[in-house]
């Protein structure tokens, strides 16, 4: 199993259902800054007309996650299926992982005085055998599709095979597992919602990158949370 998520982000309407569902599902700390998941927006003016791109995002559960390496206590670790988790009981709050993350995906949970982040609903759903995250389930326009990259028959792989996608900040070498589906029918949105220099992938092209990083990291994966 290798968990990942595809985001058909052109359907996002910034209703913030995912943000709220996440907080309610996981009992996340309250506070605008305390988000495991978010919809951000970038704005510009094109010939005097406003243009807004919406960017639903969360932890990328990088296949080659830098946050895991820096953690002095193993509080950041790979759980089942390569999900990047934090163990709040062993976090000494050195915040190294927050500095290491290129996506600002981590924050301090003041209730535990420890670092918190998206878990793909690992402890509330996946361990119970559910295969949808709270954010996916709640989404009115179904932006997200969670799934298993090892399951060739699965819906996620089928979608990745059908459509082109890109990942965020590829240059950082993190091999992220949030796949952003290129808005294939709207060139304007595709052009303006992501940097033109970004690599656009098909699954066939990206799979070896994932496989390589997985081979490197797989030994660190834990079977179940202790």
């Amino acid at each position: 199993m290798n968990f990942a998520m595809a985001l058909d982000y052109q359907s996002c309407i910034d209703c913030k259902a995912c943000e709220v569902a996440c907080k309610e599902e996981n009992g996340v700390q309250l506070g605008a800054d305390k988000q495991r998941i978010w919809v951000s927006q970038s704005e510009k003016s094109i010939f005097g007309e406003p243009f807004v791109a919406l960017h639903p995002s969360q932890c990328n559960h990088c296949q080659d996650a830098p946050c895991v390496d820096v953690c002095p206590t193993g509080s950041s670790y790979f759980a089942l299926g390569g999900i990047v988790m934090t163990n709040k009981d062993t976090c000494i709050l050195c915040k190294g992982c927050m500095e290491a993350c290129p996506y600002d995906a981590r924050f301090v949970d003041d209730t535990h005085v420890a670092v918190d982040k998206c878990t793909f609903c690992y402890d509330t759903r996946i361990v119970n055998g559910e295969m949808t995250t709270a954010c996916q389930a709640t989404c009115p326009t179904k932006v997200r599709l969670f799934g298993d990259l090892d399951d060739e028959e699965g819906e996620l792989i089928q979608m990745l095979n059908k459509r082109k996608f890109y990942v965020l900040k590829e240059d950082e070498g993190t091999v992220p597992k949030l796949f952003y589906m290129l808005p294939e029918h709207d060139k304007n949105y595709a052009m303006n919602s992501v940097d033109e220099g970004t690599n656009i992938y098909t699954w066939d092209e990206f799979k070896p990158i994932i496989e390589m990083a997985k081979a490197k990291r797989k030994p660190q994966w834990q079977a179940m949370q202790e």
Binding site: S40, S42, L168, V194
Partner: peptide, 12 residues
């Protein structure tokens, strides 16, 4: 770090 998509900083 919020310029994740390369189209400028994002607000939340």
């Amino acid at each position: 770090m919020s310029d994740r998509f390369g189209v400028g900083f994002e607000k939340y």
